[in-house]
Amino acid sequence: MGNIDVKNLIVEFDIFNADNEVVSKKRVIDDISFSVNEGDFVCIIGKNGSGKSTLAKCLNGLIIPTGGDVLIYGMNTKNEEQLIDIRKNIGMAFQNPDNQIVASIVEEDVAFGMENLGFSPEEMDKRIDESLKILGIQELRFAQTSKISGGQKQKVSLAGILCMKSKILVLDEPTSMIDKNGRLDLLNKVYELNKKEKITVILISHYIEEISFADRVIVMNQGKIILDDTPKNVVLKDELLNNAGIELPYITRMAKELKSFGKKLNGNEFSVEELCQFLK
């Protein structure tokens, strides 16, 4: 049994007509199963509408499955009494950095989760200090949340999660609304959290470049898992990816072209260094 066990998960949304009657059901997640072990860094990719965001919301019980089960450390998200315990263990950061910030001052926002769990002020103070330090944003502690950048806002929400000592981090397209510099910076921090603090990371993304941070990639298309492998192996299946509407990363595309031209490359390189190996 892993950290996270998803068994035959099915999610259907009701489609309403103008009179608020259910006319049909739309299957967003179609019978998927997988498990994630402690300390893994899993990247889930898929194009818009592939069901990846819905999957993320199933993991901490924001959406309750229509069929199948989601177990977090053995606790079922269908079991309402355990929801708080599940959410303590699984922190979540969302796409729009603005819409997840509750307070006007950074430290108050970081404290929000702990306030909900009834921590003492002294304990909160200590943990805020620690988590801001880990993310390298101590100087923002008393800043106004409306005056910081999108990347910084995402870090603030990560700090809020770290404070609760969550063991699993689910990031639902955290980088889609921040610029490129901020994106790399944020992902490097997440990578560090995974390696140093041993936090299990599930990164949901539509930027294929981001899979290079992960140990394992799950590719979704139309509510189904079509690939579940290491990043290096996933990018070799370009036909499957193409069908799912996913284009390969720049370097990988270049490597693939050069390989087919006869250069000594594997066609699954991610970095400039790896790509230029063929010159040696």
Binding site: K47, N48, S176, M177, H206, I208, G245, I246, E247
Partner: peptide, 10 residues
């Protein structure tokens, strides 16, 4: 191109 997947972007 912000928030667009690669195919839509192209």
């Amino acid at each position: 191109d912000a928030g667009l997947d690669t195919m839509s972007k192209i």
